[in-house]
Computed example of a mutant assay.
Amino acid sequence: MIYMIFLSFLALNLAGQEKIEFDSTETVYVSTKDKAVYKGRITNQSDERISLQTEKFGQLKINRDDIREIEHDNGQSIKNGKIWHEHIYASQYILTGNAIPLKKGQGYYNNIWIFSNSLAYGITDNFSIGTGILPIIDFQNGIALPFWFSAKYSFPNKGKNIYFSIGATGLKLFNVDMPVLGALYGATTFGDKNLNLTLGLGVPYQQGYGLVKYPLGKISGAVRISKSTYFTVEGFIAGINPIENQEFGEGMLLTIGGKTGSKNISFNYGAILAMDFAYPSFIVGVPILGVTIPFGNK
């Protein structure tokens, strides 16, 4: 009996030591226990060591006992000796997104102040949809339920780090006698998920009225300042009409904030600042606190 138990533990131990085979054409990241990170292709592997072909250091032989982790190349980069994972939620600023697409099967859940809940999901590598709801309490008329749906198509990246997208969104308030609202928009993003600038233009829509005459402008950006933190800024200008009224716009909405987390979760924070150009000294500020949780293919 004791002999059988010993053989069982031995079999489990040998199974745990079984090496994982890697394709020699696949790029991987090898993290060692001394906190070094190497990028390359595993050209040979045995029970004791692996051979890693790198561009910077040539052929490296690394003992398996010295390896902490081996990761497949999924868009990561190495900064200051650390792996910066590509975050799905980098396609989203605090309130709106950019032209960088979600890949097929990628999605995320976004929450702001508990009440605002939204989802986004990549149907293909270039087409994604989103939906959300935000309960609003009106002490006279009860609870209003704004529900919105959006769709975005990002054109294949023709240039280096230049993305174009078009999209539409619609909003309906339930329990309130109010027409359907929406917008058609286009955006261009320069950069990548770690550093980008987005310029956009949208035309609002109102049921029974049609497209609004004057568009809504947007300029947004994000910079990744560490492995886990992004700094973001969004600016929206309403009623752009420099020809007839000789004015740049009617008002501006500005968000300043950040996103801190990992590839599995992001904590979002910042403030919304609103200003009416007719009263430029009057600024209203509202704090933002939320969370984004990716799901699907990461």
Score class of each variant (00 low, 15 high):
Val203Gln: 12
Pro101Tyr: 06
Asn245Trp: 08
Thr43Asp: 12
Pro135Cys: 03
Phe57Cys: 01
Pro280Leu: 13
Leu95Ala: 09
Phe155Lys: 06
Ser154Ile: 03
Lys298Arg: 10
Phe236Arg: 04
Leu254Ser: 04
Val30Asp: 00
Ile237His: 00
Phe164Pro: 01
Ser165Asn: 14
Lys39Phe: 05
Lys193Asn: 09
Trp113Pro: 00
Thr54Arg: 08
Asn157Leu: 06
Leu102Trp: 04
Met178Lys: 14
Arg41His: 09
Thr292Glu: 08
Leu102Cys: 01
Phe282Tyr: 08
Gly132Gln: 02
Val176Gly: 02
Ala151Asp: 06
Ile100Leu: 06
Glu55Ile: 08
Ile129Tyr: 07
Tyr29Arg: 04
Ile237Trp: 03
Tyr279Met: 13
Ser165Met: 09
Lys82His: 12
Val212Gln: 14
Trp113Ser: 10
Trp148His: 14
Ile100Trp: 00
Phe282His: 07
Tyr29Thr: 07
Thr32Trp: 07
Thr198Trp: 01
Gly16Ser: 15
Gly186Leu: 04
Phe6Asn: 09
Glu244Phe: 15
Gln53Ala: 11
Thr198His: 00
Lys152Tyr: 05
Pro242Val: 13
Ala168Asn: 06
Leu7Ala: 08
Glu69Thr: 13
His85Cys: 02
Phe174Ala: 04
Ser281Ile: 11
Ala151Cys: 06
Ser154Glu: 02
Pro146Cys: 05
Glu234Ala: 01
Tyr3Gln: 13
Val233Thr: 09
Asn126Ile: 03
Ser51Leu: 12
Tyr209Asp: 14
Ile78Gly: 02
Thr188Ile: 11
Asp73Val: 08
Ile143Lys: 03
Ile123Asn: 02
Val212Thr: 15
Ser266Phe: 06
Gln92Asp: 11
Ile114Asn: 01
Ala15Lys: 12
Gln76Cys: 01
Ile256Lys: 03
Ser77Gly: 12
Ile219Asp: 03
Pro204Lys: 07
Asp192His: 05
Tyr108Ser: 02
Thr198Tyr: 01
Gly130Asp: 00
Gly159Ser: 13
Gly208Ala: 05
Glu18Met: 12
Val203His: 07
Ile2Asp: 15
Ile225Asp: 05
Gly105Cys: 00
Leu195Phe: 10
Gln246Phe: 14
Leu199Gln: 04
Asn63His: 11
Leu14Ile: 13
Ile83Phe: 08
Pro156Lys: 05
Met178Glu: 09
Leu254Asp: 00
Ile243Phe: 11
Gly202Gln: 09
Ile62Ser: 03
Glu26Val: 07
